[in-house]
Every structure is written in structure tokens, then in C-alpha cells.
């Protein structure tokens, strides 16, 4: 189980190059031809929605950004740009997408997408929902896993730089939780320390539960 998921995660960038080359080309084209922007010009929203979905609800491997907290979005754009966020898809897509992003534009994107309504992905394993909810709310005290609810909130709505998780896609949530334990994005304390104590089954349960939250 574990080996299979590793295989998918680590090898994904290479597969992605083949499977999603069209999307990647479109993104690249959009970034190249957008040109410099003055503050008065409209934000090039389509640079984001090519991949994240036309209503920013997430699409394929790109997570939902609609309704995410403004501070988290802005911080994320900076952490892609400064390469602190170093998981494979970040490197492949977001490093390039943010290379020429200035602080003002990052702020504008974050403000825009945080205001969009968000739909739950509802794509987890419903059989794991209760287990995920228990871990989310109570943690695993015997295993020294803290509860998620204290930082991410009762409806996983997030708080400022702490991201909204409720209704995000199962695959994205699972991948992120696994990648903390694999050493990616190590600067994002305390998540690496928290997630590395989770088993694959617990990660699946958490990602499932969260995917159903409205």
C-alpha cells in the first residue's frame, strides 16, 4: 500500500509531463504572454484558472483555491516563489508560475480567490469518514498526534495563514499529508512534525473526512 502510493507521488512529475503536457503548455503560454502589469490593470486570473479550474474549484492535480484564506494563499505564492515549498508539483508548476510574481500581484490574487465560493470535493472514502473525523477532532493522544481542530477550526475553515481544508480534494490532501512525512516543505512547522506520526490508513481517513466538509 505504502509502496504503491510512493510510486505515484514521486514518479508523478514525469508522468505528468506526458499526461498533462497540454495544460502545462497553456500555463507557460499564459505566463509568457501576460506581460508586465500595472496596478490598474485587471489581474490575469486565467493564468491561475487554466490549471485550478475555471471556477477555481480545483482540477486534476491542481487544488481548489476558491474560498481559501487570503493569508494562506498569499503566503503560499511567496513560498512557491522562494522555493520553500518544494514538493514535485510545486517545482514543476508553481515555481515557474510564480517566478515573476510581485508582492502586489500575489496580494491581489489571494484577495480575489479567497472571496470565491467553494464547493466540497466529496471524493473521499465514505467508509473512512468517521475515523477521519475522530482524528481531526481528538487527535491520537496515545500516539502523540495532536488534533487538527485546534488550528484548522471546527469546520476546517482555516484561520489566517492556517489553510482551509474542508472540502479540498482527497488526492491533494492525501498527497500533502504524505509529503510532510517524506521531508518536503520542511520549513512549514509544525506540519512536518505532526504528519510524520500518521500512518497511511490515518492519512486516508483524514483526507476522506475533510473532502466531505462543506
Amino acid at each position: 500500500m505504502r509502496l504503491v502510493s510512493l510510486d505515484v507521488d514521486i514518479a508523478a512529475p514525469r508522468d505528468m509531463t506526458r499526461r498533462h503536457s497540454t495544460v502545462a503548455t497553456f500555463t507557460l503560454a499564459a505566463v509568457l504572454f501576460a506581460g508586465p502589469l500595472s496596478a490598474q490593470e485587471q489581474l490575469p486570473i486565467r493564468n491561475c484558472t487554466w490549471c485550478h479550474g475555471s471556477s477555481a474549484q480545483g482540477f486534476a492535480n491542481a487544488p481548489r483555491i476558491a474560498g481559501q484564506t487570503r493569508q494562506y494563499l498569499e503566503m503560499s505564492l511567496q513560498s512557491f516563489k522562494n522555493h520553500a515549498r518544494d514538493n514535485p508539483y510545486s517545482k514543476q508548476y508553481m515555481w515557474g508560475a510564480t517566478a515573476n510574481l510581485d508582492a502586489e500581484m500575489a496580494h491581489g490574487f489571494a484577495a480575489y480567490f479567497s472571496e470565491l465560493p467553494a464547493e466540497p470535493a466529496n471524493d473521499g472514502d465514505a467508509a473512512l469518514e468517521d475515523q477521519g473525523k475522530a482524528i481531526y477532532s481528538e487527535g491520537l493522544p496515545d500516539e502523540n498526534v495532536v488534533s487538527c481542530i485546534v488550528c484548522h477550526g471546527p469546520k476546517a475553515q482555516g484561520y489566517e495563514r492556517i489553510p482551509r481544508l474542508g472540502g479540498m480534494g482527497y488526492a491533494y490532501l492525501k498527497r500533502r499529508l504524505e509529503q510532510w512525512g517524506e521531508g518536503y516543505h520542511a520549513a512549514a512547522e509544525p506540519m512536518p512534525r505532526i504528519a510524520r506520526n500518521l500512518t497511511t490508513n490515518e492519512i486516508n481517513a483524514l483526507a476522506s473526512y475533510l473532502s466531505f466538509i462543506k
Partner: peptide, 16 residues
């Protein structure tokens, strides 16, 4: 993890 690496407290959705 919640109360801070130096026990300084932490403001998440709730305050630790």
C-alpha cells in the same frame, strides 16, 4: 506542537 517550541503559545483557530 500546539503550545509552541518554547512554550510561548500559538494562535490557531483557537488559542493555545
Amino acid at each position: 506542537t500546539c503550545h509552541g517550541l518554547s512554550g510561548e503559545g500559538y494562535r490557531g483557530y483557537f488559542s493555545m
